[in-house]
């Protein structure tokens, strides 16, 4: 029953570990079985189930890959992610994946690309931003909008400074609860950034990640600005137990977020996002 059993994790080993902030950490990991390492491929926006021995599994986005190493950045928020923070280089975990449908990066070729994220980190889009930057000439303008409550909430601020130097790329940052007006920062929510963003509304793909209310608000703002709803994509988050469409926890109306998502085009989820409780 081992072969093709979608429930069984594979062993991985932590090769590098970075403590990003007191509660955010990054693991670079590799499969201990070279055969599995070789056959593993993923799409940007997909996720893995990471298993901590004796504690449990959590869905975590694939941040990037660094050669054969997979990179995951995790915020310690609860039972599994707190305990996982204690792992060190050389420690082992379990991993199943990749799961789900990623961002439409192929369909977006030749178009302007807009990323809108809110909240802390927003791991699901980072690998796509890096991908687009890596293939800069295959895409049009690149706009990255990130909003947080406080400036110090943003992970990797130096990374944004680096991205600012990439040709044809605009970085817009907003802090909603900050009192000080820092250079390069706007005060307010993500909506304040839209006036400054420079992209072709008729030829763009927008990828949004954040809490439900922020995503539907952003989508409606974009539609008012004449962006075609079909070109707006969201990454949804729901409770996940199995990641393979069996346990029912991630259902969003008729969609199973784990296998039909987590990335959806706005029209696929628009109707139910208007209501609480799905």
């Amino acid at each position: 029953m081992t072969t093709n059993n979608c429930y069984i994790p594979h062993e991985v080993e932590i090769v590098e570990r970075v403590q990003e902030t007191p509660d955010v950490y990054t693991f670079k990991i590799k499969f201990t079985d070279p055969e599995i390492a070789k056959s593993y491929t993923f799409k940007h926006g997909q996720f893995n189930m990471l298993y901590l021995y004796g504690v449990g599994e959590v869905p975590i986005s694939i941040m990037s890959n660094d050669g054969e190493l997979l990179v995951h950045t995790i915020r310690a928020v609860g039972r599994v992610t707190n305990a996982m923070m204690g792992l060190q280089v050389g420690d082992k975990m379990g991993l199943r994946g990749p799961f789900g449908r990623g961002w439409p990066l192929d369909e977006a070729k030749g178009k302007d690309i807009v990323f809108v994220t809110a909240g802390l980190g927003c791991a699901p889009v980072v690998s796509s931003i890096r991908y687009v930057i890596g293939k800069r000439e295959e895409y049009g303008k690149l706009v990255i909008m990130q909003s947080v409550k406080h400036r110090h909430d943003v992970l990797w601020e130096p990374q944004y400074d680096e991205w600012r130097r990439v040709p044809n790329t605009q970085i817009l940052l907003a802090a909603s609860r900050e009192k000080t007006q820092w250079p390069q920062w706007e005060l307010g929510r993500v909506a304040v950034l839209f006036d400054k963003a420079d992209y072709d509304k008729d030829n763009c793909v927008v990828m949004v990640c954040g809490p439900d209310a922020m995503m539907s608000g952003t989508a409606r703002t974009l539609i008012d600005l004449n962006v075609d709803p079909k070109n707006i994509y969201l990454s949804m988050e729901r409770n996940m137990q199995c990641a393979v469409g069996h346990c029912g926890h991630c259902q969003f109306g008729s969609q199973f977020v784990c296998k039909d998502g987590p990335v959806f085009s706005y029209p696929e989820v628009e109707e139910l996002l208007r209501h609480r409780g799905f």
Partner: peptide, 10 residues
């Protein structure tokens, strides 16, 4: 009905 949760038992 098919819903279930996963539980770890060390």
């Amino acid at each position: 009905c098919f819903c279930h949760r996963e539980v770890e038992k060390p």
